[in-house]
Simulated assay, not measured.
Amino acid sequence: MSAAASVWLVLLLAAVLANLPFFNERLFAFGPRKVHKGIALRLVELMLYTALTIGLGRWLEGRNSQMAEQGWQFYAVLSCVMLTLAFPGFVWRHLRRQH
Rank of each mutant, 00 (worst) to 15 (best):
M1V: 07
A4Y: 08
A5I: 14
A5T: 13
S6E: 06
S6H: 10
V7H: 12
V7I: 15
W8D: 05
L9V: 09
L12Y: 02
L13R: 01
L13C: 06
A15L: 14
A15T: 10
V16Y: 03
A18C: 06
A18G: 03
L20Q: 10
L20C: 05
P21I: 06
F22Q: 02
N24K: 08
N24H: 14
L27R: 04
L27E: 03
F28W: 14
F28I: 04
A29R: 10
A29Q: 09
F30K: 04
F30Q: 08
G31D: 07
G31H: 08
G31W: 07
P32L: 06
R33M: 05
K34T: 03
V35G: 10
H36Q: 12
K37R: 15
K37S: 12
G38A: 06
I39N: 10
A40S: 12
A40P: 02
L41P: 00
R42M: 12
L43C: 11
L43H: 06
V44F: 07
V44Q: 03
E45M: 07
L46I: 07
M47E: 15
M47R: 08
M47Q: 11
M47H: 08
M47F: 14
T50D: 00
L52G: 06
L52F: 08
L52K: 00
T53K: 00
G55K: 04
G55M: 06
L56T: 09
R58N: 09
R58H: 11
W59Q: 05
W59I: 06
L60V: 05
E61K: 02
G62T: 06
R63F: 10
N64V: 04
S65N: 09
S65I: 03
Q66T: 14
M67G: 07
E69S: 14
E69A: 15
Q70F: 08
W72N: 03
W72R: 09
Q73D: 15
F74D: 01
F74R: 03
Y75D: 04
Y75V: 04
Y75F: 15
Y75Q: 03
Y75E: 02
A76H: 05
L78F: 14
S79N: 10
C80L: 15
C80E: 11
C80R: 13
C80P: 05
V81E: 05
M82E: 00
M82R: 02
M82V: 03
T84G: 15
L85W: 05
A86H: 00
F87K: 09
P88T: 08
F90I: 15
F90N: 00
F90V: 13
V91H: 12
V91A: 14
W92I: 10
R93W: 04
H94N: 13
L95P: 04
L95T: 10
L95I: 12
L95D: 06
R97F: 12
Q98H: 11
